[in-house]
């Protein structure tokens, strides 16, 4: 599947709001904190909408206009690094009069973040490489779009 921009947005929204949400609720139980994982999920979604525009731009530079699995993985890692950087950008948040991004506990550890983010990403990544084609027959032809 080689995504279109609409396809990226629609697939991201669908997967984060279904399997992403379920996994996040699981981590909420595990961490004893519902708000932080849910807030992180929201940030992944919002920042991802912007990242997708960048990815689409990079994709258009390629003759095949494809988005190989390696790029998907690299994109996931970049998004994680940026999000973690934002979570820990104390100077930035202090300037805004906050202790951190709204909803995210200052006690969030890198291990917790990596576990949560990593699980959501790996499950989404695996679904996009195969099972999504089975659930939505036309998904692969429509570049990830549902409508």
């Amino acid at each position: 599947m080689t995504p279109t921009l609409w396809g990226r947005w629609q697939t991201r929204l669908l997967l984060l709001s279904t399997v992403g949400l379920l996994i996040t609720l699981g981590f909420g139980v595990l961490f004893g904190n519902w708000v932080t994982p849910l807030a992180l999920l929201g940030y992944v979604l919002l920042l991802g909408l912007v990242w997708d525009v960048v990815y689409q731009g990079v994709q258009s530079l390629r003759w095949d206009r494809d988005w190989p699995p390696l790029f998907m993985a690299a994109g996931g890692l970049l998004e994680a690094l940026l999000l973690w950087g934002l979570v820990k950008a104390d100077v930035l948040w202090a300037g805004l009069g906050l202790t951190g991004p709204p909803g995210v506990s200052p006690e969030l550890t890198l291990m917790q973040f990596a576990l949560h983010y990593g699980t959501v990403f790996v499950v989404m990544f695996s679904l996009m490489l195969g099972p999504m084609r089975v659930i939505f027959l036309q998904w692969r032809f429509r570049g990830g779009q549902f409508f």
Binding site: T2, P3, L5, R65, D66, F141
Partner: peptide
């Protein structure tokens, strides 16, 4: 190109 099979 691969995007002809199902992309933009």
């Amino acid at each position: 190109p691969k995007a002809c099979f199902g992309g933009d």
